[in-house]
C-alpha cells in the first residue's frame, strides 16, 4: 500500500506535465483538426529557453521568486512566438487545402525544432541548477512527498485551472469552443476565426513551455530529443481523454502518468510503452471517442 501511494505521487507529478502538453494538442486539434506533432518539441524549446536564462545568463543567482517567474514567463512568451511563427509560415497556407500535406508539415516542423535545438544548444545533456528548490519533503504515513513535487503539481493545476476559467469564463474562450463545432457559424457571429486560431496556438505553446521548464526543474536534465517521447505521451493522453475535450486532456495526462509510474514500479520500466499503448488501444476499441468523449463536431 505504501509503495502504491508512492507510485501515485510520482505518477501524478509526471502526469501533470503530460496533461499540460496534452492540452496544447487538444486545443489546437479541436479548432483546426491538426495533430500538431511539434507540440512536444515546443515543450523542449521552452525547457531550453528556461535553461539558457537560469544557467547561461545566471538568473539562478537572482532571488528565487524572481528567477522562477522569469524562468516560466519568458520561455512561455518565447515559445508562443515560435508557435505563432510555425502557424503563420507553415500551417496557414495549407489549412483547408491538403490534410496530408499539413500533417507532413507538422512532422517536418517537429524534425526542424529538434534539429534547430541541436544546432543552438548542442547534443549533450544540459543540467538545470540542482538546488533551486528545496529537495526536502514531508512524510504522509508511509509516503514521502517532496516540496518540489507539491509545488510542481500545484503549478500545473493552477495553469490548468486558469485555462479552464479562460475557456469557460470568457467570450473569446467560448468562441474557441464554438469553433470546435462550426467555423462558418462562428464567422456569422462576428468571430475572427484566424485570431482565435492564433490564440489557440499561443495558449498551447505556453502550456507546453511551462511543462518543459517544470520537467527541467524536476529531472534537472534536458536534452534536445526530450520532445519526442513527451509529445507521444501527451498525444496519447489527449486521445485517451477524448480529443478536443479540455478536462479530458487533464485527466488523460494524469492517467498516463499514473499508468507509467505503476508499470515502472510493479512490472518494469521496460514495459511502460507497451502498457500505455495497450490501454489506449483497448479504450479506443471499447469507446472510440475516448473516455470523456470528444468535443468536436463530425465535420467542419
Amino acid at each position: 500500500m505504501g509503495a502504491f501511494l508512492q507510485y501515485t505521487v510520482i505518477g501524478l507529478t509526471v502526469g501533470s506535465f503530460y496533461a499540460l502538453v496534452a492540452l496544447g494538442y487538444t486545443i489546437v486539434y479541436g479548432i483546426i483538426r491538426l495533430i500538431n506533432f511539434a507540440q512536444g518539441d515546443l515543450s523542449m524549446v521552452g525547457a531550453f529557453i528556461g535553461w539558457t536564462l537560469l544557467v547561461s545568463l545566471g538568473f539562478q543567482h537572482l532571488p528565487l521568486w524572481l528567477a522562477l517567474i522569469a524562468a516560466f514567463v519568458i520561455p512561455m512568451i518565447g515559445t508562443a512566438l515560435v508557435n505563432l511563427g510555425i502557424l503563420q509560415f507553415a500551417y496557414k497556407p495549407l489549412l483547408h487545402k491538403s490534410l496530408w500535406a499539413i500533417l507532413i508539415t507538422a512532422l517536418g516542423m517537429s524534425l526542424f525544432l529538434e534539429n534547430a535545438a541541436l544546432q543552438v544548444w548542442g547534443p549533450s545533456i544540459n543540467a538545470y541548477p540542482p538546488s533551486m528548490l528545496p529537495s526536502s519533503g514531508f512524510s504522509l504515513g508511509p509516503v514521502h512527498v517532496t516540496f518540489l513535487q507539491v509545488a510542481l503539481f500545484l503549478t500545473s493545476l493552477l495553469l490548468m485551472a486558469g485555462l479552464y476559467a479562460f475557456v469557460h469564463g470568457t467570450m473569446i474562450g467560448t468562441a474557441m469552443r464554438a469553433l470546435a463545432v462550426d467555423h462558418d457559424a462562428a464567422r456569422l457571429m462576428g468571430i475572427d476565426v484566424d485570431q482565435v486560431i492564433r490564440l489557440a496556438f499561443v495558449l498551447g505553446a505556453m502550456l507546453a513551455a511551462a511543462s518543459g521548464v517544470m520537467i527541467g526543474i524536476y529531472y534537472t536534465q534536458i536534452q534536445f530529443t526530450m520532445g519526442f517521447l513527451l509529445g507521444l505521451r501527451a498525444f496519447t493522453a489527449a486521445v485517451l481523454g477524448g480529443i478536443g475535450n479540455i478536462p479530458g486532456a487533464m485527466v488523460g495526462g494524469m492517467l498516463i502518468g499514473l499508468l507509467e509510474s505503476y508499470t515502472a514500479g510493479y512490472l518494469s520500466g521496460k514495459w511502460e510503452t507497451v502498457i500505455v499503448f495497450g490501454v489506449l488501444i483497448a479504450v479506443l476499441v471499447v469507446k472510440p471517442t475516448g473516455i470523456f468523449g470528444e468535443r468536436v463536431a463530425e465535420r467542419m
Binding site: 500535406a101 508539415t105 526542424f112 534539429n115 541541436l118 544546432q119
Partner: peptide, 20 residues
C-alpha cells in the same frame, strides 16, 4: 550535422510549394 535541419526545412518548403 546540419543536414537534418536543412532536410526538414526543404521538406516544409516542398509541402508549401507542391502539397500534392
Amino acid at each position: 550535422s546540419q543536414r537534418m535541419l536543412v532536410f526538414s526545412i526543404l521538406l516544409i518548403i516542398m509541402m508549401l510549394i507542391r502539397p500534392q
